[in-house]
């Protein structure tokens, strides 16, 4: 049992972090807390990608004239792109929350839904 957990511990960590973020997205009514949850959710996937680039005994992938074992840099490069995407999503989400706050004067989702029942 312990071996099963330890052998793929990076998967366990990412799943636990992911579920923490997912819980916040679903359960929190405050829109800012939802965005924080969404960020945690995305970051867990980044951590998985970064961890899979690891090669046992590998070194930085810069060729220095000697043969060596290198880590795999490709997942890291992919995640640089995904981080940019994540930042943009956070920015758009905050901009939308600012707009929602201007319209309704609150960022609690329950209160907003209660208010928007009356208008169509």
């Amino acid at each position: 049992m312990m071996d099963f957990i330890l052998a793929k511990y990076n998967f366990w960590i990412y799943v636990i972090i992911m579920m923490i973020g997912f819980y916040a997205v679903i359960a929190k009514s405050n829109l800012i807390k939802k965005i924080i949850g969404l960020n945690i959710f995305q970051t867990s996937v980044f951590l998985l990608f970064i961890s899979i680039g690891k090669v046992e005994g590998g070194t930085v992938p810069i060729y220095q004239g000697v043969e060596a074992v290198y880590i795999n840099p490709l997942p890291h490069v992919l995640i640089l792109t995904a981080i940019v995407v994540g930042v943009s999503i956070t920015a758009v989400a905050f901009a939308l929350v600012v707009n929602i706050y201007r319209e309704y004067g609150t960022i609690e989702e329950n209160a907003i839904l209660e208010m928007s029942k009356t208008d169509d």
Partner: peptide, 14 residues
């Protein structure tokens, strides 16, 4: 134009 538009956009985003 509707004041519900930002909320619709936010829920779509999440």
């Amino acid at each position: 134009k509707s004041r519900r538009a930002p909320l619709a956009g936010f829920r779509y985003l999440v």
